[in-house]
Design a protein around this nucleic acid. Structure first.
Lengths: 199, 199, 199, 199
DNA sequence: ACCGACGGGACCGCCCGTTGTT
DNA sequence: AACAACGGGCGGTCCCGTCGGT
């Protein structure tokens, strides 16, 4: 009874980095067999298909990323600090991602461009959560009078996420930290510019 | 003979969108046969392997994208206008890319994360060209006194590319133009902030 | 314990139609698990292998068919009526077989053409019983003076069974009752033609 | 160009007996590889799937059987002799079938009971042809005054086919010629009983 | 007695690359 | 230069049987 649950958890933990590194199509069952230590028959006792396993692994990975983001937001006091902490948490994915392979939503969004609509839908949901986390934080900052009233929460969400994902891609492509560092500076400046000027 | 050259050109033109849409691994020879109208033997007369063809198709695609960027820069007068035009040219890739599938460098950078080092190296080269195009434009603007002397060209290059790629990914993920639009506004503001303040 | 016996009976009752419908090779353990409500481990507590279970299920099914045939013969008075009743009992297998899937001996004989000699031998035994039932009835009719003395019991057995099985196959193939109906008329005429002409 | 056609013909010739002996599901690609001498890749160049190949092999086999039946009918003068010749041709399938494995329609009709509707439909068409061949011969005999006017062609078709298929099954099950011999005698008697009594 | 996890293997389908032919 | 045939191999899926635990 408990064994199955433990095994399933171990499967996800081990296969999520495989999928995130090689992609859904690029990860073969052989890769998953190697990573999990189970045989194909063993895997299929827990998941009906490679796709089912991939979806579960995606959900697991999103949870890992999301937990960090939420913790960053929860651990700061003001809207400005929340956004700054979130920026750092996102860019941390370059050097120390919770699941190997970098941002799972970025990877999945690019790979599932045309194929695999189920995975694509999951990526949308996960990305929407991240955008909403930023949007809500901005909204709360506006309500409390900390941020300017003319700021569009959705615009800030788009910009912060875009800069983060783009810079992450650049740093991974070159293996150079510089890009995420520049992104962090710019994101911090952008965030600070949202504050009400108290003359 | 001329025929061989023409055939090779046609092969690239037809296979580049296939690779850019399905990815290098996701595109099968069957797909390429269908797209080009040639049979396998015909393809292998011109390219030694799928990888060789993929590299050539990548180069072809990069050329298409690069030509647009260069034209945008060449068609504007000042550094500011060059950068603004380049931003528009990049974001145009969402609704009207020169090769179907969106930004080929982004796609390739993400897919070739671990596998396919040859393709990855090409992506680096192509990306470096784009970064350099921005960097040189900024440098020239500084030299002419149009842009502030404390501006770091490499930083601007990173930021503009990151925002562009990130926003493109978001717009493609959701099928909504809003993200690239917000990116364009932000990029324009960023570019204008580089100018020397003439009091 | 009684429980074990009951369980075994339930397994046979539920798995016999599966085997008779899908064939021995076509029925998977998954199908049997679904049909019986037990898990694989449960099934293997009672039967050593799929083949053992298949043989037991075959025996069970043959018993169901045989009981009907015997009852038909026992319920009639004269040899002629016994044979007529048996014909009806056999052809009833088209619309209302005791085990879903039609005549199990026909199905098994065809499927186990080359593979599975154990099952094939069982089919032979079961078919021999049916032929013998007809043969004995004819013999008894001859002995009592009801049937002509020049009638070959084995020939009648062959003919009645052949027509029955052939017509059953035709009716199942087309989903039309007509073929078994024609067979029944012909079998009745054949049976009546065996009687001594009392001038 | 010609090579492909020849190969395709050889594939059918070699795979038809495999399918007819082992059944559609029972015949593995490994079996077909062994029988044809080609590898899987080679087979898949000519047929898109195992099912496509099976259907083609079925058609090929039906043609072989049908040619014999037609030749038997064409080679006789009167309706009576045509039917007698056809009976012999059918029962010849026990000892010398044109495609190993016995009557393909019988085998296919039994196996495709529930699964494989495409193959089932083909079996129906093939069986209908055989029934029609008998029916038309009877009809022609009636028209020429050779056969009695109260004879139902469809009934004769059903009976002859049923006896033939049933007896073939019995002889194959036991490996004894006796059953088809008895069937032939009975079929001959049945055919002769159709003739107009010329007093 | 029954369940559920698991292994190892065979299934069909598709892959890429080569070869011979036109 | 283009085609079509073909090989060998890997892909995911499902198979049956065993074994430890309840």
């Amino acid at each position: 009874m408990n064994k199955g649950i433990k095994t399933r958890a171990a499967i996800l933990e081990r296969s999520a980095p495989i999928f995130n590194t090689l992609g859904y199509a690029g990860a073969s069952l052989q890769d998953l067999v190697r990573a999990t230590g189970l045989q194909k028959g063993g895997l299929y006792n827990h998941y009906d298909s490679k796709e089912t396993l991939a979806l579960a692994a995606f959900d697991y990975a999103v949870e890992q990323f999301g937990a960090r983001y939420q913790a960053a937001v929860d651990g700061a006091d003001t809207a400005t600090n929340k956004l700054l902490a979130l920026s750092k948490a996102m860019l941390r994915n370059y050097e120390d991602p919770p699941v190997a392979g970098g941002c799972i939503v970025l990877n999945t969004a690019i790979e599932s461009d045309d194929s695999n609509p189920a995975l694509r839908e999951r990526a949308r949901v996960a990305m929407t959560k991240l955008l909403a986390l930023i949007g809500y934080t901005v909204k709360a900052g506006k309500a409390s009078g900390e941020l300017r009233s003319d700021v569009d929460p959705r615009e800030i969400a788009t910009l912060l996420v875009a800069i983060y994902e783009g810079a992450l891609m650049l740093s991974k492509l070159y293996g150079e930290r510089a890009h995420v560092q520049r992104a962090e500076r710019h994101m911090a400046a952008l965030i600070r510019s949202l504050r009400v000027v108290n003359a």
